[in-house]
């Protein structure tokens, strides 16, 4: 197992290195940079000044030089400065992370609370009316664009409750903040809970067909105990795996949802930073997301290996 771990870890680092190169190169082939934007917000100004600003921002070196500067900066714990706010990148990103993490965890909570039990019900009652209803609901969950759902929710809130659940300033307490995040989290979580519901259902059905379940039934175990003690436990395995992948998908949903609900989290920040060509923010933020995704997948793999005796560590 030790060797396998080391190997997986090595691959992980390799992947992250590749991402850093790709994102860095992509950003620099994007037409226009921050200097253009600064000039744009100032209406046209003296083109001779452009070179000076580019030099100030370290944008005048070759792309390789710039890359080396970035990576060696990271090695020294210096992520650079945001081009837009001129504050250290850490200061810009760090306060936004907890907001997005809270939102993502709440969405994941919704996913598990609704997805798993409804999936089980759907499987146990296969082909019943309730199964069909749940399947259609879960399919619509996968079909509604997250931002549309968010817009509809906002419309409904203003029309019926005369209030709007958007962020217009730091909430006074944690409770207030969670209440504010609950609605966007539900909007994001709808999609993932639909996915988990479908997966749980098919995994359950698969397991229910297996021999040992039949054996358990033959031995006279009650239906309830078969369903929940034997089948569910085994069915959860693939669900755990997918939850890992879904964590990456959640980020996509978070981008649009944070935009609609005006939540100052990292997901929306990324879009804004791409727009304003704030390279230091985009680079480091994308790396952060990639690290989270890669690490989550790594953990899920380990969990999977630990849970499923059939997997060997030799790969």
């Amino acid at each position: 197992m030790g060797a396998y771990l080391v190997r997986r870890f090595g691959l992980m680092l390799l992947t992250l290195f590749g991402i850093s190169v790709i994102i860095f190169t992509l950003l620099r082939i994007v037409p226009g940079n921050i200097v253009d934007i600064l000039f744009d917000t100032a209406g046209m100004v003296d083109p001779a000044e452009k070179a000076r600003i580019a030099a100030d921002l370290g944008l005048d070196g070759t792309i390789v030089q710039q890359y080396v500067n970035w990576i060696s900066g990271i090695a020294q714990g210096n992520l650079g400065f945001s081009y837009v706010s001129e504050k250290p990148v850490v200061e810009e990103i760090a306060p936004r992370v907890p907001i997005t993490v809270k939102l993502a965890l709440m969405a994941l909570g919704f996913t598990i609370i609704f997805g798993v039990p409804l999936g089980v019900i759907s499987a146990v009652r296969q082909n019943s009316a309730i199964d069909y209803t749940l399947r259609i609901i879960s399919l619509s969950g996968l079909s509604l664009p997250a931002f549309w759902l968010a817009l509809l929710i906002l419309m409904a809130f203003v029309a019926w409750f005369d209030t709007i659940p958007i962020y217009t300033g730091r909430p006074a307490s944690l409770g207030e903040e969670l209440a504010l995040l609950a609605i966007p989290a539900a909007a994001v979580g709808f999609r993932s809970s639909s996915l988990v519901m479908r997966l749980t259902r098919s995994a359950m059905l698969e397991v229910l067909r297996q021999d040992y379940i039949r054996t358990a039934r033959a031995k006279g175990a009650t239906r309830q105990s078969v369903n929940y003690r034997h089948a569910l436990r085994n069915a959860l395995l693939p669900v755990v795996t997918v939850l890992g992948i879904e964590a990456a998908f959640l980020i996509g949903g978070l981008i649009v949802t944070e935009t609609v609900f005006n939540i100052p989290g990292v997901a929306r920040f990324l879009v804004e930073a791409i727009r304003s060509r704030d390279y230091p923010i985009v680079q480091n933020l994308v790396m952060l997301i990639a690290i989270v995704v890669v690490v989550v997948n790594f953990i899920v793999d380990m969990l999977y290996a630990a849970l499923d005796p059939r997997i060997k560590y030799s790969d």
Binding site: A248, F249, G252, V256, V271, V282, I289, A290, V293
Partner: peptide, 10 residues
């Protein structure tokens, strides 16, 4: 390792 939308955005 990058979410679909993030990659597509970039």
């Amino acid at each position: 390792a990058l979410p679909l939308l993030v990659l597509a955005l970039v």
